[in-house]
Design a protein around this nucleic acid. Structure first.
Lengths: 161, 161
DNA sequence: TCGAATTGTGGGCAATAGTGGGTAAAGATG
DNA sequence: CATCTTTACCCACTATTGCCCACAATTCGA
């Protein structure tokens, strides 16, 4: 699993291709094959998984969820729906399938953002919209999980060390 | 973790580079690699983290938060928003990405301010604006957290150095 | 007060990254 | 099977970034 960081601006060309930023490729290391799985993301974005990460993830889903449980089945279907294997071309670009472009309403200007081990592709305007709504929501969310975060030297808190 | 102090004036050149003040570098010690992570700060400024500090923090976030929980996801995205790895050049300058320059509305004159383990980069005019609005707001805020601060010999008294 | 060392600023240039598009192969459609 | 559409591969151009050097400004010590 990766510890990814980074927000990159990029453009989708007329053919529906997006170049993966050099910085991101570097983080994934030469180790990772140029094969990815692209999927509908949570929220209005796409999730990009390095193939090996995808494999691990599906394995977890499959082993922990029970296809005979209707809720689980729903989640499984949702999770797999739209998953498409994509590879990079010689210029490190991936071709985004039409259906996914539509789902995330991608236009020319896109944002690729990474956190934890996730890579997400957003339409720039949706991403900015998301960012701008934050302040109150965010602090509220922080409050609600403050016990989970206790002790993390995030803000000005009594820093550990 | 660091105990940083200082307020430095500095200039961003036409290429969008800012020199990290020698005093700050000294505080960070040779120990810290010349790699940092820059991201959007609270308020209209940028936060600069020495790479190792960033890594420690994200590791905490990543391990305690669950990307399948929408609240958690929101916090993760919020925390990571804009995060970009930057390195210093041979003259101890970092290149500020365009999108972040815009976010903090940085112009030629910038202020780098440090407190606790945080480093923030402000546009000079915004920083001054923010400082100048304070007197009443500040004491009001002090009132509201006075119990937390009880016993700390801060006050406005004959300043400690 | 002068010189030397450190710090800050600007810019040239080469390497890399990003973008767009042509063309041929592969696949789909009737 | 012919034709049209989509995808893969390649090349070329432009923008951006990283690296380096030179000089200006400031500080410090003699």
């Amino acid at each position: 699993m990766f510890q990814l960081t980074g927000e990159y601006e990029c453009k989708m060309d007329d053919k529906g291709r997006i170049k993966l930023p050099a910085g991101l490729i570097r983080q994934l290391g030469g180790s990772s094959l140029p094969t990815f799985v692209l999927n509908r993301g949570l929220e209005k974005c796409l999730s990009l998984y390095p193939k090996q990460t995808w494999d691990q993830t599906t394995q977890q889903f499959n082993s922990r969820l029970n296809v005979y449980d209707s809720k689980h089945r729903e989640i499984l279907r949702y999770f797999y729906r739209g998953a498409t294997e994509v590879t990079t071309d010689s210029a490190d670009r991936i071709l985004i399938p039409k259906s996914l472009t539509e789902y995330a309403q991608l236009g020319k200007d896109c944002i690729i953002t990474c956190y934890a081990s996730r890579i997400e592709i957003w339409a720039k305007n949706h991403y900015e919209e998301w960012l701008s709504k934050e302040p109150e929501d965010f602090s509220k969310a922080m409050d609600e999980v403050k016990d989970v975060l206790a002790g993390i030297p995030f803000s000005h808190g009594p820093s550990s060390t």
